[in-house]
């Protein structure tokens, strides 16, 4: 019984954490694409900065962002394995700056709320 309860608790926490992270996903990706990157290099780059993102989430996300006009892509066939490189478009750069500001405001506001709770 207790095991079941713990499992359910873990599941709930996990899904809430995923929910929280999902909102930051686009911003994380945009922040790393000033210079062209291909799918796996981006996974590694994010991993180095201890942002874990599933490959199965990232690859489709890149295509979606391209479709929305935030990224441009190009196949590089000069190396032994052809790779598709993505980089911020002009619009993407503007959107990134905008989102960055939004994020800072948001985290400040949230910090305020959380801090208030600790003070009590």
């Amino acid at each position: 019984m207790a095991g079941d309860y713990l499992e359910a608790y873990d599941e709930l926490i996990n899904s809430l954490i995923i929910e929280l992270k999902r909102g930051t996903l686009v911003l994380s990706v945009l922040s790393q694409l000033k210079n062209p990157e291909y799918g796996y290099s981006l996974v590694q780059k994010l991993e180095e900065k201890s942002t874990l993102i599933e490959a199965g989430t990232l690859y489709p996300l890149l295509r979606r962002l391209e479709k929305q006009g935030l990224l441009t892509s190009e196949w590089d066939t000069s190396e032994s394995r052809p790779r598709k490189f993505y980089v911020l478009s002009e619009e993407g750069k503007a959107v990134y700056q905008h989102l960055k500001r939004e994020w800072r405001t948001l985290s400040e506001q949230l910090e305020l709320l959380l801090k208030e709770d600790e003070d009590v």
Binding site: Y38, W75, R81, P82, K84
Partner: peptide, 13 residues
């Protein structure tokens, strides 16, 4: 295009 990209990503991994 999706297939080519997916394949090259998988091979990279």
């Amino acid at each position: 295009d999706v297939a080519d990209e997916l394949r090259s990503n998988i091979e990279d991994m």
